[in-house]
Simulated scan of single mutants.
Amino acid sequence: MASTDFSAEIKSLRSTYASIEEVSDVPRIRADIAMLSEEAGVPDLWDNPAAAQVVTSKLSHRQSELERLTSIRTRIDDLEVLVELAEMEADADTLQEAETELKSVRKALENLEVVTLLSGEFDAREAVVTIRAGAGGVDAADFAEMLMRMYMRWAEKHGYSTRVMDTSYAEEAGLKSATFEINAPYAFGTLSVEAGTHRLVRISPFDNQGRRQTSFAAVEVIPLIEQNDSIEIPENEIRVDVYRSSGPGGQSVNTTDSAVRMTHIPTGIVVSMQNEKSQIQNRAAALRVLQSRLLLVKKAEQDAQKKQMAGDVKASWGDQMRSYVLNPYQMVKDLRTEHEVGNTSAVFDGELDDFIDAGIRWRAAQRRPQS
Rank of each mutant, 00 (worst) to 15 (best):
E80I: 09
E80G: 10
E80A: 07
E80Y: 04
L82K: 02
V83P: 05
L85F: 13
A86R: 05
A86N: 02
A86T: 07
E87T: 11
M88H: 12
E89F: 05
A90H: 11
A90K: 14
D91W: 09
D91G: 03
D93M: 11
D93K: 11
T94I: 14
L95S: 03
L95V: 04
Q96D: 13
Q96E: 14
E97T: 11
E97A: 11
E97F: 00
A98E: 04
A98K: 10
A98V: 01
A98T: 06
T100M: 12
T100Q: 15
T100L: 13
E101S: 06
V105A: 02
R106P: 12
R106D: 13
K107D: 15
K107A: 10
L109W: 09
L109E: 03
L109S: 00
N111V: 13
N111L: 13
L112N: 03
E113D: 15
V114Y: 06
V114T: 05
V115Q: 12
V115A: 08
L117V: 02
L118P: 10
S119I: 07
G120W: 03
G120H: 06
F122H: 11
F122Y: 06
D123M: 03
D123L: 02
D123F: 08
D123V: 07
D123P: 08
A124C: 14
R125A: 09
R125D: 08
E126V: 01
A127K: 05
A127E: 04
A127M: 08
A127T: 01
V128K: 09
V128C: 10
